[in-house]
Design a protein around this nucleic acid. Sequence first.
DNA 1: GCGGATTGTGTAAACGATTACAGAGGTGCG
DNA 2: CGCACCTCTGTAATCGTTTACACAATCCGC
Lengths: 346, 346
Amino acid sequence: MSVTIREVAREALVSVATVSRVLNGKGPVHADTARRIRSAAKSLHYVPHGGARSLITRRTTTLGVLLPELYGEFFSELIRGIDVCARRKGFHLLVSSSHSDRAESEEMVRAMRGRVDGLIVLSPDVRPHALKANLPEKFPVVLVNTAGGRGSFDSLTVDNFGGAVEMVRHLAGLGHRRIDFLEGPAANRDASERLRGYRQARSEQGLETSGVEIPGDFREESGYEACRRILAARRRPSAVFAANDSMALGLLCAFQEKGIRVPQDVAIAGFDDIPIARYVTPPLTSVRVPIAELGARAAELLIAGLESGPAPGRRRETLPTHLVVRSSCGELDGARPRSASGTGYG
Amino acid sequence: MSVTIREVAREALVSVATVSRVLNGKGPVHADTARRIRSAAKSLHYVPHGGARSLITRRTTTLGVLLPELYGEFFSELIRGIDVCARRKGFHLLVSSSHSDRAESEEMVRAMRGRVDGLIVLSPDVRPHALKANLPEKFPVVLVNTAGGRGSFDSLTVDNFGGAVEMVRHLAGLGHRRIDFLEGPAANRDASERLRGYRQARSEQGLETSGVEIPGDFREESGYEACRRILAARRRPSAVFAANDSMALGLLCAFQEKGIRVPQDVAIAGFDDIPIARYVTPPLTSVRVPIAELGARAAELLIAGLESGPAPGRRRETLPTHLVVRSSCGELDGARPRSASGTGYG
DNA sequence: GCGGATTGTGTAAACGATTACAGAGGTGCG
DNA sequence: CGCACCTCTGTAATCGTTTACACAATCCGC
């Protein structure tokens, strides 16, 4: 079928060992021989067989990435971050997404054996113990935004809690006393941390608390729907803090259709700072989440662990978030913060 | 290091052949023996080594996906589509993105040897001949939205040309005589096809033609920037057709900041129908591109070719696009088309 | 009780690479 | 000249599987 090292050897009139040496740059080989081998390899379109190679070297130079069903740009940003870092260090990516139930996740974990050197896991469905049961002893794993990474594996999170706290303080600082919160999916770790931050800051600031949490699912549609509940309430909020930007934008759209002015009648804030956030009217105040950096850092951590053997101790890192103030909360008078404020999403 | 089939065999007091037979469900094995083997495998956390296995079976049950540096949701949607289909057929995905120059692309192609059974290629940088030079004879490949797939490989496209034509006709039908076009990146195939469609329909409809094409790069920022050029022109367009939604939204934002009303003062249309398009004010008229289906179809085509040997003839498919009319062009009077109009992006 | 399936299992040869080891030839030095 | 030591190359073992083939035991119909 496809050409092997043996055929290259025959063509160049040498043994397979010498071919291997030339192609991997190891061991001393006569310049003429090397030239002959290289030209034979090229003319035969020889490419070494990854599987065979990894069998003996015990390395695949491939990182596995396990993802849940994800909606929107988070996924692609994260992959991009991981990929950039992995590529720089000479690694490939074996990605598997869209697995929602736990059995399927575990199946994926098993399928990665012998194909990857380490794993980056994002699925909140994969419990640490399930990972352990399906992986070789001491297999390198980095958990990202996953619940209960306690002790077993290296793990990485963004400071969802801190970002939410900061946003609520910002809103309170602008004089808002009643701030509704538009929740994300109940099972989602990021969502619950943002909710926790909101609650903490709300009570810390002594804000109103009656019936101000509205269910949502991170999608534009649910933000749009939330409008109805907000308008139906006896007392209306002066600000709404959505657990992510997509919902904030859905809500913004709904408000504008009803003739409710933002930010004059009600302020809106989001979370994530997706690229479009600064290009809606009014531009959306949000919390910048360094998604690409999160991915890159995960890859970095994993590869470091790969090269230096098992890590000394389990690491747990939290990446900071940053408040991005735009005019949807009335702070600025229509001036649009330009890209000089940092893109990071490019 | 990690447990092999040999250790399972020893534990279950049988030969490796029998273990393999049980785990793959081939050949007759005594029920008791099978039970013993299965329990040994489970207690040892045995997982077969993918590399070793693929070496002998000559199958990896993995599909390679080659992507360029991509911006926005196109990437994640496409991957999702591919993944859903691949998973259903029992395949994994080896993804590689962010390779921009050609040498790097070729390197990636080579790296896939022995790791994947077939390739889905999106990079416009990978010329067909470069593919041929770096792949085994008859290696299954499906090209997606790539220039010059003429003859060599199966290929798949969306009807960018037709979609653009349809949009211009729609705008002309609303009475617009001067329709500016906001271009995508010059090297991008989708962008150039959309431009071609725009030009074709423009001349077909006998519309104005002087200096109405504005450079852009598919990003919000360039749509925002385009506003300046449009306002500086001697004659202003009554409609602007952007080569993608991101730019359309950037332009919309810029217009609104200048107090120019959409659609009363100027109409705006986009291309792609990204989820946010129906949640801006006013909702954006666009062209629906079935990205996820595109990915799914690519995977389907590839897998079909895998299972039935080399395809009879090279196939070339074009997926249809659909006009999605919302109020940004003045057709509707503020009523927002609801998700009943078909999501497909969920 | 005897050939011929049938069933259950083991032995060993692949698959395509890497690499330890050894050997061949040349060089420098005492 | 002999010995140690390079440089260059080949032989063969190895990685963890699958599977063709061989073989033993059991079963069936006569």
